[in-house]
Design a protein around this nucleic acid. Structure first.
Lengths: 338, 338
DNA sequence: CCCCATTTTGAAAGCGCTTTCATCTGAGTA
DNA sequence: TACTCAGATGAAAGCGCTTTCAAAATGGGG
């Protein structure tokens, strides 16, 4: 059985293919009666996307780029949640998603050069990336999910305030009486890392606590195994830190492990704070205090922004900031008496 | 600046577009010297995918379908890992991924009807789904990731042996001395659930332990909150179960929570076993004994199978079974003395 | 140096649609 | 009744490529 084409529909409805195309695309200039007839003839007819795309120069699909280094093995849970939001929003608007998970950006460029997508949503873009300027230069709309500063005047982005959030939790620890507070973050190539670090520094400076550089553990490649080691570095110091701000909940898990290995009680001897408030946080033992961030909403919002751009034909260079919530649980307490 | 077309390349190289097309597609019938010339003219030229697709009837993209109920909120980690495997394998072979996350299957049908994809990888297909027969009837290649039985004679699928795996762990618990063993699984609409349940029954029967029906908690909609409740049902029984086989690690986490709330020690008073061996398992307290399954490899293998199908033009109705590994940790012990 | 088999190339059709532009209606007006 | 003009429709071009088929170039005997 051959696939039904627009010609078949036209024949069946007794009109020309132009008319069929018009009712398909909702063009107004069709008499109600013929429209009815055409619609009736459209049963079992599905336009071939590539023909449409070729002619209309629109693909109705969005490229979703997730920066992921294979050595991390697990995909960041916040990306997944954002992806869920993106997916739902896309579906609502009749867009499809072309997914590219990779560390380099050639995948993205290909999609764009080959006109496979109408726009992009980018997650986890490195500060050093030159993808954005390529996209700009070629009028390809895109929205960033997550932190990014970059050299550009401004990009369309949906983000949280990492700096502020970490500043808050650090202040919380300081308020609890901690002075020697450690922090473990990933590569400062990523704005989220440098911002969180900046938030920590801001809080410490605000409280007039001079930061010992050995409290700050920056790691290019922050796997759980690495994080565990770095946490131990923190714990082996003398005097050792009494609290640790972890880059995210995975890191916090590793810190828990390290604490256990070092015979340190949480929160009695060490306080720990995570970030992202992933599913596990509430189930950890003790339940982890963590900064919840609206990952799903970030994705959803980004998609909406992008679709707006696509409709209007121009891209706002605006940044939207969503709010985080500190989920206070049982992993933090006053530091032990000295 | 206008995009370079095949005509531009042809002009630049002093040949016809047919020749350009031939070198682009690696057709042999081109003299080496002209080939060189054309390739030189190809700088900055990127064929428009839709034109290609329209003509060649191939999209070089695979539809990835993930069954996900929005009320679960989090996407199953095994799906993500499989997705990672799929992604890597696709990239190697120059395929792109069109992602559709949803509970219903209309998204899939659309992609297929509109010729957006050359084939499908399906994850989490319900037994009641009629998508497969639609795909069969239309000669659309697809590979299943994960359990499925179905009415069809056989489909191309990459899977683990859920029954066997759960049978093993149940036997392990029995070997430890447990008799009253509970199990919590999700909807038996999904083969993985019914299979795991079958494995449990098989082990219990093998050990001549009559199963009390209140030990078996089947839940249509197994969220963490639900799982916690079900675990409590198990613990409130008198005499209560001394071990719980959880459908997966998320469920196991909920069981941990329930045990804590009920004042039960793991593994002293209750043993718990998870499934999937997700990232958290090793970090739980106590570390969770869980069945590791090769999710990434499942995805990778499925993609390879699919690509083979696409090349050969025919689809094998074969099932590949990958092996699980029981990761023994500290969540299981002998039952308490009575 | 010619002929024929082979290799290499080009012209043109066409994939299935959108869109422009011209044509055709028919209602409204003088 | 003839004339407008807006609304409805169709013919045809063309989006950028692949592929078929025929023509041209090549080369190896005789």
């Amino acid at each position: 059985m051959q696939k039904k084409t627009i010609y078949d529909v036209a024949r069946e409805a007794g009109v020309s293919i132009s008319t069929v195309s018009r009712v398909l695309n909702g063009s107004s200039k069709v008499k109600e009666s013929t429209k009815k007839r055409v619609e009736a003839a459209c049963v079992d007819y599905r336009p071939v996307a590539s023909a449409r795309e070729l002619q209309s120069k629109q693909t109705k699909t969005i490229g979703v780029l997730i920066n992921h280094r294979p050595e991390y093995f697990f995909l960041n849970e916040t990306y997944i949640n954002a992806l869920l939001g993106i997916s739902v929003a896309a579906k609502e608007s009749g867009y499809r998603l072309l997914l590219d998970i990779s560390e380099d950006e050639t995948g993205a460029s290909n999609l764009f050069y080959e006109k496979k997508v109408d726009g992009f949503i980018l997650m986890g873009v490195k500060e050093s990336s030159n993808l954005l300027s390529v996209l700009w230069d070629n009028d390809m709309p895109f929205v960033l999910v997550g932190s990014f500063h970059g050299d550009e005047e401004g990009v369309c982005q949906v983000d949280i305030n990492d700096r502020k959030a970490v500043c808050s939790v650090t202040n919380y620890l300081i308020g609890l009486g901690h002075r020697r507070i450690g922090i473990i973050v990933g590569s400062t190539e990523y704005a989220s890392c440098s911002d969180r670090l900046a938030g920590y520094r801001q809080a410490m400076e605000g409280a007039n606590i001079p930061i010992q550089e050995e409290w700050v553990q920056v790691c290019e490649n922050l796997t759980e195994v690495m994080a565990e080691q770095l946490a131990k570095h923190l714990f082996y110091q003398n005097p050792r830190v009494t609290a640790v701000v972890a880059f995210n909940d995975s890191t916090a898990m590793a810190v828990y492990k390290a604490a256990k290995d070092c015979g340190l009680e949480i929160p009695g001897q060490v306080s720990v704070i995570g970030f992202d408030d992933t599913k596990v946080a509430a189930y950890m033992s003790p339940p982890l205090t963590s900064v919840w961030q609206p990952s799903y909403e970030k994705g959803e919002r980004a998609m909406h922004l992008l679709i707006d751009c696509l409709k209007q034909g121009s891209m706002p260079r605006k940044r939207e900031e969503l709010n985080c919530i500190i989920m206070y649980r049982e992993s933090c307490a006053a530091p032990p008496e000295e």
